[in-house]
C-alpha cells in the first residue's frame, strides 16, 4: 500500500516537473522562432502596398453601387409621383 502512495508521489513530482520543463522549452523556442520570423520576414511592410489598391477598388465599386442605387431610387420616386 505504501508502494502505491510512493508511486503516486513519484508520478506527481516527475509529471509536474516534466510538464514545466516541456512548456519552458516551448516558451523559449517559440520566442526564438518569433524573433527569427519578424527579422527575416517583415510582414507589415508588404501590407500597405497591398491594402491601397483593394481599398481603392472597394470604394470604386461602392461608388458605382451608389450611382445605381440613386438611379433606381429616382426611377421609383418618379413612378410613384406620376
Amino acid at each position: 500500500m505504501d508502494n502505491l502512495l510512493s508511486e503516486g508521489l513519484n508520478l506527481m513530482v516527475f509529471g509536474m516537473g516534466f510538464v514545466f520543463v516541456f512548456l519552458t522549452l516551448l516558451v523559449i523556442s517559440t520566442a526564438v522562432m518569433s524573433k527569427l520570423a519578424t527579422k527575416y520576414a517583415p510582414a507589415p511592410a508588404v501590407k500597405p502596398v497591398k491594402a491601397r489598391p483593394t481599398a481603392a477598388a472597394q470604394s470604386a465599386s461602392a461608388a458605382t453601387k451608389n450611382d445605381e442605387l440613386i438611379a433606381v431610387m429616382t426611377a421609383a420616386v418618379h413612378k410613384y409621383r406620376s
Binding site: 500500500m1 505504501d2 502505491l4 502512495l5 503516486g8 508521489l9 508520478l11 506527481m12 509529471g15
Partner: peptide, 13 residues
C-alpha cells in the same frame, strides 16, 4: 491533475 492522482491513491491507501 497530479494532486488528484495523489488524492485517488490516498483514498486507496
Amino acid at each position: 491533475i497530479f494532486a488528484t492522482v495523489l488524492g485517488a491513491v490516498g483514498l486507496s491507501v
